[in-house]
Design a protein around this nucleic acid. Structure first.
Length: 599
DNA sequence: ATAGGGTTAG
């Protein structure tokens, strides 16, 4: 387009000047272009009102720039805003949109929203609410969000579909799915795809897989066609559930519908295949990607790590550096946990310093990986000093990691202080009581075990039950410890008995120390046989034939005795068994496990 | 002018 000269501009009417501004900004891509357009407009010495118009258009362009608001863009947006004499609601809205929503509290975007309220005029409109809600969701800030909800109601802005979707998404991000659902149900029947996707994703985020998938079916039933954003939620739900058959079906559905498999969906697919135990297919999706970013690489590296494929994980990391893709904290979670799962202490330490040389500030999770690495290699003193020297206050997971390690190396000194800190941080977490009584039980301190049990009962804490699931013909069968509710429990019991016979003949002695209660050895053996993972594996043996792989997902860590038994089963029945426990995969073939018994 | 998406230690 032709640029105006200041002399020409002086002769033109306001409408013509505004049209010039609009067409000038239409061609702008990115911050630099906006700045040079701004410089040009300044040279024109526009009349006051037209200048304000130009500034608000610049501000709006700044807000809708494709990249996420970088520091430079947001400070520029603020400069623009400050030059506008009487900012309209449109100006406030653009500024809220242009400022970073996430990050330090209070988020700058929300601060501007509050500023607007305090100024008294202009009043917020539906756009303001929608942008402010988005900022709240990005933090996420549930308290602020509720205030915004109240304000939306007070100002009569709640009828807007955009405000409703904003609220729904806010609650979903805050993991308050019940509230999100209330908003969702209150929306008009012709809900947008965006609303459906946000709700499905909300369920998926909190692990309510059945609800996520149910809603996906409902959406199809009312004739709303999903897109790639919807499918990210559905695929993530499959990943969380470890539901491989379902995940495969959904992937096929994506292909059949011609839904674009973009960067985000590919990453979700990598994660799903990795978490469902098909690491080769995860690799296939990864290799087929034309564009890969840090998150895609990280998903693949973490995938290899949970499969115990340390060479693949570390090899991919080197390749990533070669290709100049910048790793982030999550990438290093993958790298460090891969080292931890294989006992590579020196390598782990080396990667730790690489991380620091790259200027990446270690997160709580990174510290956790490092402490886990040291603990697994029996370097309890190193681990403990690492914890003490952390610049951030260690969380409960870190103390628990230490405590678990104390159990196997009998370090009562460290155990005492770790358990003290743990109970201070989390007095109501049942897991801690289970762990502590486990620790006491392995030292035969039965009086302390019963003390803990009483304390647990008094404070109304109930332990999380071990739960394992197996997918048979597309149905997810769930088993909890000592579960006899399954309709085929009689047949399952027969399989369990046969397993017990074969295991005994293989010379295995049940590792009864894994049983918490102070009961006789025989009862302990029975208790072991009722562990959820064993029930699920037995059901797999009952319902499938070789070479079908028995795939089980467990919510807690593998019981050490069941781990031994699974090895024997894989050999004796000549079956491949893959179990995903809480932290990683175990692949049993011919009597040995991919974790090499190091976990 | 507006709303929805991917990787995260034990």
């Amino acid at each position: 387009m032709r640029l105006l000269k200041p002399k020409e501009a002086a002769t033109l009417p306001r409408e013509a000047l505004e049209a010039h501004v609009v067409s000038l900004l239409r061609g702008c891509r990115g911050l630099l272009a906006l700045r040079s357009a701004h410089a040009h407009l300044t040279r024109l010495r526009l009349p006051r009102l037209t200048a304000a118009f130009a500034l608000s258009k610049l501000l709006a362009a700044c807000a809708s720039a494709p990249a996420p608001p970088a520091a430079a863009a947001s400070s520029y947006a603020r400069t623009l805003f400050d030059q506008i004499p009487d900012p309209t609601a449109f100006c406030y809205n653009s500024l809220i949109r242009a400022l970073p929503a996430a990050g330090a509290a209070p988020a700058p975007a929300l601060a501007v929203y509050r500023l607007m309220l305090r100024a008294g005029s202009p009043r917020p409109n539906t756009f303001t609410l929608a942008f402010a809600l988005k900022a709240c969701a990005a933090v996420p800030a549930p308290g602020e969000g509720r205030q915004l909800h109240a304000q939306a109601l007070r100002q009569g802005l709640e009828a807007s579909a955009y405000v409703q979707t904003g609220l729904l998404n806010l609650y979903a991000k805050c993991e308050q799915v019940a509230l999100a659902r209330t908003v969702f149900d209150g929306m008009a029947p012709d809900k947008s795809l965006v609303a459906w996707s946000a709700m499905i994703n909300g369920y998926s985020r909190v692990g309510m897989v059945t609800e996520a998938l149910g809603l996906f079916r409902e959406m199809q039933a009312v004739g709303v066609e999903p897109d790639e954003v919807t499918m990210v939620g559905v695929i993530s739900a499959c990943a969380k559930a470890g539901a491989l058959d379902l995940g495969k079906w959904v992937h096929a559905y994506i292909d059949r519908k011609g839904i674009t498999v973009d960067l985000e969906l590919s990453t979700a697919l990598i994660d799903m295949y990795a978490k469902c135990g098909l690491i080769e297919r995860a690799r296939g999706v990864f290799d087929a990607m034309v564009e890969k970013d840090t998150k895609a690489w990280s998903a693949m590296i973490v995938g290899f790590a949970i499969h115990g494929l340390v060479e693949d994980a570390l090899g991919l990391f080197s390749r990533m550096l070669e290709l100049k893709v910048r790793p982030n904290n999550v990438t290093f979670i993958g790298v460090l946990s891969a080292c931890a799962h294989s006992g590579l202490v020196d390598d782990g330490r080396r990667y730790w310093s690489i991380m620091q040389n790259l200027g990446i500030k270690p997160s709580m999770e990174n510290y956790g990986c490092m402490i886990d690495l040291l603990c697994r290699s029996g370097l309890l003193d190193d681990a403990y000093s690492f914890v003490i020297d952390m610049p951030i206050s260690p969380n409960s997971i870190i103390w628990r990691t230490l405590l678990v390690a104390c159990k196997s190396s009998n370090r009562i000194d460290i155990a005492e202080s770790a358990s003290k800190r743990l109970l201070e941080l989390e007095p109501h977490n049942p897991e801690n009581y289970v762990l502590l009584s486990n620790l006491c039980a392995s030292n035969s301190q039965w009086d302390r075990v019963s003390y803990l049990r009483k304390k647990m009962k008094d404070s109304n804490v109930t332990a999380v039950a071990g739960c394992s699931s197996i997918e048979i013909n597309g149905y997810l069968h769930e088993f909890v410890v000592s579960d006899d509710s399954h309709p085929e429990i009689k047949e399952i019991r027969l399989v369990l008995r046969e397993i017990a016979d074969r295991v005994r003949r293989a010379g295995h002695k049940p590792w009864t120390a894994a049983v918490l209660h102070d009961v006789g050895e025989e009862e302990k053996e029975v208790a072991l046989c009722e562990h959820s993972e064993r029930l699920a594996i037995a059901y797999g043996l009952l319902k499938t034939k070789a070479p079908h792989v028995i795939r089980v997902v467990k919510n807690l860590r593998f019981c050490p005795d069941c781990h031994e038994v699974a090895k024997i089963i894989s050999k004796s029945y000549n079956r491949e068994i893959i179990v995903r426990d809480r932290v990683r995969f175990h692949k049993f073939i011919g009597g040995s496990c991919s974790c090499k018994d190091f976990w």
